[in-house]
Design a protein around this nucleic acid. Structure first.
Length: 434
RNA sequence: GUGGAUGUAGCUCAGUUGGCUAGAGCGCUAGUUUGUGGCACUAGAGGCCGUGGGUUCGAGUCCCAUCUUCCACCCCA
């Protein structure tokens, strides 16, 4: 009786062709992050529960994978922000601030898996952490990071929605609903998904007075171009300090975003972007691919006042965003929205005829020395099978080496796409393959 | 955590009011082609019909249980 091989639900396992696509996206994200000078970071997948759960509560605590090994109470990381907080506090004296790091890694959440929702998934985080303070310009640079990264991934038509939580929180102060601010934000965050009427219903369920609901609704639905919206916000002439601070910050961010060359068509002020997470305190972002609106936000994040308050008294404000790569890949792949010209790793397959293996090894090695990813077919199979192998792996070129080639010191190079085949010297073949 | 579905070949599925040896397409293997892949044609392999029990002369089909997986909500990436 054999054991049936199975993969746990909610865990993604790809066939080579898809893995190549996935790795390509991951690589592009990494390249883009490094373009801004973010430093690489890797932290353990397992941490002590005490450390990981220092601030957690509610949902995260329920979803965490937690287990005991001997006397150790351990947990799998459920995001990359908490490990960052730990890391920054731990290595505070060895780091230079502002500390800009990126981290691409797997995180774990023990929730019910469903479509596009995984229990193990990659997050691609970038954050900038300040020591004591951090200029608002970083909030603008983050938009530039998003812009550059999404472009790098091959998309043109996308919108980075920007808001500032201080504006919303200030509004809630104004209407005396501060205690419900997180709940209200979660509801208005869903405006697009569930519609205006359902938002109003949900707000009523929270026992919020009708007048306050009206204020919220009219406020978050302010329309117009970015500059018009900013003007409209200022025209309210709020007395509330927090709102005015938020508006001022938002205006600054927009100003610097433009200076960083992010075109107006790729960002907008959206007062309904609230983010469910409670630790954001200022600027918040969500990014949508306009051709694939149904995917939801592909890159979100925001500004937080204090990264590591559960580990240290030092004040470490930061701003960061994250791409949920696993979900993004899964959904784009499902929609057939990602393509790659190179579908194989090897660029050429060297296939010797029966007695020419020695020469094939020499030729293959020469190709590899010239930095051409090369696979040599080592098994004794029919030539047909060798070509079929190249075809199925989508290797774009095949070099055949037989008796005549060895005699003339040439190779037969075939372009698998056009079907064209030429007899060339090894040097000429290398030139073509480069 | 709440609610709703599902299960037949590697994959997507068909299978009548219960009835012969359980089918199709795709994929896979081999051949047509011993120095050439895709395309075409031909042949072949591949199934405890999720599992256990029940009803029946007879169950892939009906009933019960169980497991599995999926979907939506919640929350999130």
């Amino acid at each position: 009786m054999k054991v049936e091989p199975r993969t746990l639900p909610g865990f993604m396992e790809l066939l080579p062709e898809d893995q190549i696509l996935f790795n390509d996206m991951k690589q592009k994200i990494q390249n883009s992050y490094e373009k801004f000078g973010f430093l690489p970071l890797d932290t353990p997948i397992i941490e002590m529960s005490e450390v990981l759960l220092a601030k957690a509560g509610g949902e995260t605590e329920k979803q965490i994978y937690r287990f005991e090994k001997g006397d150790n109470d351990l947990s799998l990381r459920f995001d990359l922000t908490v490990p960052l907080a730990k890391y920054v506090t731990e290595h505070y004296n060895d780091l230079s601030f502002p500390f800009k790091r990126y981290q691409i890694g797997k995180v774990y959440r023990g929730e019910r898996p469903q479509k596009g929702r995984f229990r193990e998934f990659y997050q691609c985080d970038v954050d900038i952490i300040g020591d004591g303070e951090l200029s608002i310009i970083n909030d603008a640079e983050m938009v530039s990071v998003i812009y550059t990264t999404i472009k790098e991934l091959g998309f043109e038509d996308f919108t980075i929605c920007i808001n500032n939580r201080k504006i919303l929180n200030g509004l809630f102060q104004e209407i005396n609903q501060e205690s419900l601010s997180v709940d209200i934000m979660r509801i208005i965050d869903k405006l697009e998904k569930i519609g205006k009427d359902n938002v109003i219903e949900s707000l009523k369920d929270l026992q919020i007075p009708e007048k306050a609901i009206e204020q919220i609704m009219s406020f978050i639905q302010i329309k117009g171009e970015t500059n018009e919206k900013l003007q409209l916000l200022k025209d309210y002439e709020f007395k509330n300090e927090l709102i005015n601070e938020g508006i001022e910050e938002l205006e600054q961010v927009i100003k610097f975003v433009r200076a960083l060359g992010v075109p107006d068509k790729n960002f907008k002020v959206d007062l309904t972007i609230a983010r469910g997470l409670d630790y954001y305190t200022g600027t918040v972002y969500e990014t949508f691919l306009n051709d694939y609106r149904e995917i939801g936000s592909v890159c979100s994040g925001g500004r937080y006042d204090n990264l590591a308050e559960f580990y240290t008294d030092k004040k470490l404000p930061g701003v960061g965003v994250s791409i949920g790569l696993t979900r993004l890949f899964y959904k784009l792949n499902e929609l057939n929205a990602i393509k790659l010209s190179q579908k194989s790793v090897a660029k050429v397959l060297v296939t010797p005829m029966q007695d020419e293996m020695q020469t094939a090894l020499v030729v293959g090695t020469a190709l590899r020395k010239a930095n051409i990813p090369t696979q040599i077919y080592l098994e004794n199979k029919k030539i047909k099978a060798k070509f079929k192998y190249a075809d199925r792996l989508k290797i774009p070129y095949v070099i055949t080496i037989g008796e005549t080639e060895v005699q003339n010191n040439t190779v037969a190079l075939k372009n698998m796409e056009t079907g064209e085949q030429k007899t060339l010297s090894i040097e000429d073949a290398i030139t073509i393959l480069k």
